[in-house]
């Protein structure tokens, strides 16, 4: 049993270091609004969105354009990997508060991206 736990831990450790190269972007959810509402990212690169829900209610990060869906629990941090994206605009929204919690990922060519 211990061998299995050790093997699983090693696998996850290796996986974490393998995943570490994705550039990180932080989003904050507060008062049912995403901050920043628009993030500019480099096109054709893998990205790691770190989303912190500072509200006292859950929210669901949803995007038809990015094919992503994840519940953001209150006071917790969530991670979503996106990309590589072609240049363009990709909308996302909070499914529980779709009128207010809205945002856009703007993928631009690397030279123009706001890094």
């Amino acid at each position: 049993m211990n061998k299995w736990i050790l093997a699983l831990s090693m696998l996850l450790l290796c996986m974490s270091s393998w995943l570490a190269y994705a550039k990180e972007y932080k989003l904050i959810l507060k008062d049912h609004l995403f901050y920043p509402a628009e993030i500019t990212v480099p096109a054709n690169k893998k990205l790691r969105l770190v989303i912190e829900n500072q509200d006292d209610t859950p929210e669901e990060f949803d995007s038809f354009d990015l094919n992503r869906e994840k519940v953001l629990y209150p006071g917790r941090t969530s991670v979503i990997y996106i990309g590589p994206l072609s240049p363009g605009r990709y909308d996302f929204f909070g499914e529980f508060s779709p009128n207010t919690a809205r945002g856009t990922v703007v993928a631009t060519e690397v030279n123009d991206a706001d890094n």
Binding site: R48, N67, L85
Partner: peptide
């Protein structure tokens, strides 16, 4: 696949087809 891509276990996000002009999901 989407979940695996979301946690970066698989890379399936490149080479998208776009059928939004035909029928949008929502």
């Amino acid at each position: 696949l989407d979940l695996a891509s979301q946690v970066d276990l698989l890379d399936v996000t490149s080479n998208y087809l776009d059928w939004r002009g035909f029928l949008v999901e929502n």
